[in-house]
Amino acid sequence: MTTGIDLSQPQAQAIRSDEDVVRVRQLVRTVAVAAKLSLVDQTKVVTAASELARNTLVYGGGGSVEVTTMDNGRRRGVRIVFADSGPGIADLDLALTDGYTTGGGLGLGLSGARRLVDEFDIDTGAGRGTRITVTKWAR
């Protein structure tokens, strides 16, 4: 289903529905396999992507994701950028606390996803959307 895509180019995917979250998972897995991540690291980054894609859909009102294969000369990796133009996050520290949720979830999405990746960067503020960049490197 994912054969024939050029993984050297960033892969974009809209997040508008439930099914798109599934597509994001499959896309991230394909890229992670190509970047030669170990099975556990693949699982971690796909799980993190699933959490963040759902956040983009539920809290950001939909948005988009871009998945890129990384190569810093020594290690390969996967970088995923989630962007939405939703309400943004007013209190970031609170949002990153385990168990905190405004949407009736378990409150592990953001904080849990952060633990599953190597680099986690979030750019947000009340009223200006949210942009989350995560990177997972091959060991």
Partner: peptide, 14 residues
Amino acid sequence: MRPAVAITLVELGL
């Protein structure tokens, strides 16, 4: 449950 899934769940905090 696969080992990789279990390890990820522990890290996730679930």
